[in-house]
Design a protein around this nucleic acid. Sequence first.
DNA 1: TACATTTGTATCGTTCACGATTTAATCTCT
DNA 2: AGAGATTAAATCGTGAACGATACAAATGTA
Lengths: 150, 150
Amino acid sequence: MSNKLASLYLENQLCFPLYAASRLTTKIYTPFLNELDITYPQYLVLMILWQHPEQSVNEIGKKLLLESNTLTPLLKRMEQKNLIQRTRSKSDERSVVITLTENGLSLREKALSIPEKIADSFQDESISKEEVVSFKQTLDKLLGILAEKA
Amino acid sequence: MSNKLASLYLENQLCFPLYAASRLTTKIYTPFLNELDITYPQYLVLMILWQHPEQSVNEIGKKLLLESNTLTPLLKRMEQKNLIQRTRSKSDERSVVITLTENGLSLREKALSIPEKIADSFQDESISKEEVVSFKQTLDKLLGILAEKA
DNA sequence: TACATTTGTATCGTTCACGATTTAATCTCT
DNA sequence: AGAGATTAAATCGTGAACGATACAAATGTA
């Protein structure tokens, strides 16, 4: 990184490929998520709730690294779709508890096949399993560092 | 990937860490870009134009993997800020040519220090140079595969 | 008990991202 | 040359992200 000029090129930076890969990966999910009539961020919220069907906005936000300015509108849309319920916590009136509805819970079965389908669509590609594992390790490490900075 | 249930968890997937890392990395740029009064996508367009100060919307789109539905409004905002000019191509009236203004060109010098500042903010972290290089290689490979699919 | 501080959500405004569609220019092929 | 196909931008509507701010509940402290 000694060359300032070179570092101004897109292809020499890390942020751009992250940004582009993120967008394009999300796009791969889209056709499968369309079948469930949900978006990718909504799918993320559902995955979190499928693990523990009752969590506060704050807890969800910590897992997704999002704040209420993003989550509140997102969760309201999910409430309108009857995927979740939003209720003020009795024990702490500041907090809003999100609970899965029957409907939201039922999507879980349909979603079970999604990761497999995604994996399939990469099956014939020239990235080895070891490379993916090592890649994900560094990605997680990077994410840890970034999350600390935020 | 034998366990479908496990694969439904966020942390086993690649898409979520990419999504989160992309957002958080962009956030690291924000304070530096604020000094130039530009956003991250605007910075990307400028980097492309600093290499070749006259390119069509289409050419820019190919490099950023974005289409006119995203680029047209983005470029219009940049035109309003007097960073670029938008003119119909004479040789092909369908095409719109984007040219850097004096103002847009002049930001280049201020931007030169940004990659260094970003690198500095990761300096004390526990990721080796080799790990980053290998990571970027896989990321680029992944991006290539994704771009082909799109 | 009062009062300042912190915490959890919500709201607002701006900018992106993107699917779907439209329009006009160009290309192709006969 | 003319008809159909392709290409390049633009437009529209929806859903995110996110900084800044507001507000009420809870917590800490004098």
